[in-house]
Amino acid sequence: MTAVSVRGLRRQYGERVVIENLDLRIGKGEFVALLGESGCGKTTLLRALAGLDAIDGGHIDAPGKPAVVFQEHRLLPWAPLWQNVALGLETPEGRAAAIAALSEVGLAGREEDWPRNLSGGQAQRVALARALVREPKLLLLDEPFAALDALTRIKMHVLIRELVARHRPGVLLVTHDVDEAVAIADRILVMRAGRIAASYDTAGQTGLRDTLLKELGVETDTRAA
């Protein structure tokens, strides 16, 4: 089953072509990381998949509405946590689902709390719960852990792997952190100049980190390390 299938995608701002003839397929339960230098079009691709930006050519086939977790948590400061998670589904069932989702991300019993009482990592977990409560077929993650400290980030990596294994959405993680991509993705795509330049399966790969860094124009000397 396919979570999203993109064919010949084209996106341009005025004269400048940001994405050109891009193909992409993400399967159910597949965790794909998208690496690329700033300005290579990776966020543009994510926004197109999220339906936030119009596309100028090609097709995007995604069953159902994708869920998005942004770099900032984007919680409503005036709504208690359960309402944030259940945003748009404020029924008794929605509340129950939100409470369940909160406990899944390790925030059981905090449903009536306010966002201001959360740490950065906790707020991002609520944002994850808000995405997952919608049971999306496609989960889009736009550098969701970039603003977190190193330890919190590792905990989030474990959590997101668990959640994806359980709910099995297709995942596209946009990141510029090679180690993060290697740690959590099944497949890593490198984007360059609006196209997918390379694709690597992470399973059983050694030296992938260096290969990826080289793809991104970072030279590493493995003998010195």
Partner: peptide, 21 residues
């Protein structure tokens, strides 16, 4: 505006966007 974008990705109706955000 980031919260309004959130409203779009969560598929809020315009009435809900006004009331909730």
């Amino acid at each position: 505006p980031k919260l309004l974008e959130l409203a779009r990705v969560t598929g809020l109706s315009w009435q809900a966007t006004i009331r909730r955000i």
